[in-house]
C-alpha cells in the first residue's frame, strides 16, 4: 500500500537486464490545444516516466497553479488522477526541479535528465486536467538501448501532439 518515492526511483533503476545503465536525457514537446470555450483555464499537466510494467513511476514535471494564494492550487492536483495515484501523492509540493507554473496553449517544450537508465521498455506519460474542462492521458512508449529513442502520439481533447526524443 505504502509506496515511498525512494522505492519508485529504485524500482526504475532495477528495471531491465544486466546491461549497463546509460545516462539519458529526454526532450519532450507537448502541444496544448487552443480551445474556444467561454471560460478557459490553463490545464494542470503531469509528465512522468515509468517502466512498461506500469509500476514505479518517476515524476518529471508537474505544471500547476503553484503561485495561487496559499498554494491552494494543490487542492486540484488529485485531478491529475493517474499521476496522483502513481506517485504525485508521495511528493511534497512545490517540488524543486519538478513543479512549475501552468503553461499557455501552443507548443511547449521541456527537457529532463532521466539519469542512468537501464536498457528496457519504458513509457513517458503526459496527463492533463483542466478546470471546467476534461482530462486526458497520452502515453509515449519507447525502448531504451542506450543509443536513442523516439516516440510520438497525439491526444484528442486536452492534449495535441506529444513527442519525446530520448538521447544519451
Amino acid at each position: 500500500m505504502k509506496i515511498s518515492h525512494r522505492t519508485l526511483i529504485t524500482g526504475l533503476a532495477a528495471t531491465g537486464a544486466a546491461a549497463p545503465a546509460a545516462a539519458a536525457t529526454a526532450e519532450i514537446s507537448i502541444a496544448i490545444p487552443q480551445l474556444k470555450v467561454a471560460e478557459y483555464h490553463k490545464p494542470y499537466v503531469a509528465i512522468w516516466l515509468e517502466p512498461a510494467t506500469g509500476v514505479s513511476a518517476r515524476t518529471l514535471a508537474v505544471w500547476y497553479d503553484a503561485d495561487n494564494r496559499e498554494d491552494a492550487g494543490q487542492k486540484w492536483l488529485r485531478d491529475l488522477r493517474a499521476w496522483w495515484r502513481k506517485g504525485g501523492r508521495t511528493l511534497k509540493m512545490p517540488a524543486n526541479g519538478i513543479s512549475g507554473a501552468t503553461r499557455a496553449p501552443g507548443p511547449q517544450r521541456a527537457r529532463f535528465n532521466l539519469g542512468a537508465l537501464q536498457p528496457g521498455a519504458y513509457r513517458i506519460v503526459v496527463e492533463a486536467a483542466r478546470e471546467e474542462g476534461g482530462r486526458e492521458v497520452v502515453t509515449l512508449p519507447f525502448t531504451w538501448n542506450g543509443k536513442g529513442a523516439r516516440a510520438a502520439a497525439s491526444g484528442s481533447s486536452e492534449l495535441g501532439a506529444v513527442a519525446a526524443a530520448i538521447r544519451p
Binding site: D71, K75, W76, L77
Partner: peptide, 10 residues
C-alpha cells in the same frame, strides 16, 4: 464528497 484529497490539508 471525495475519497482522495490533495494539498497541505483538506
Amino acid at each position: 464528497s471525495a475519497a482522495t484529497v490533495s494539498g497541505e490539508d483538506g
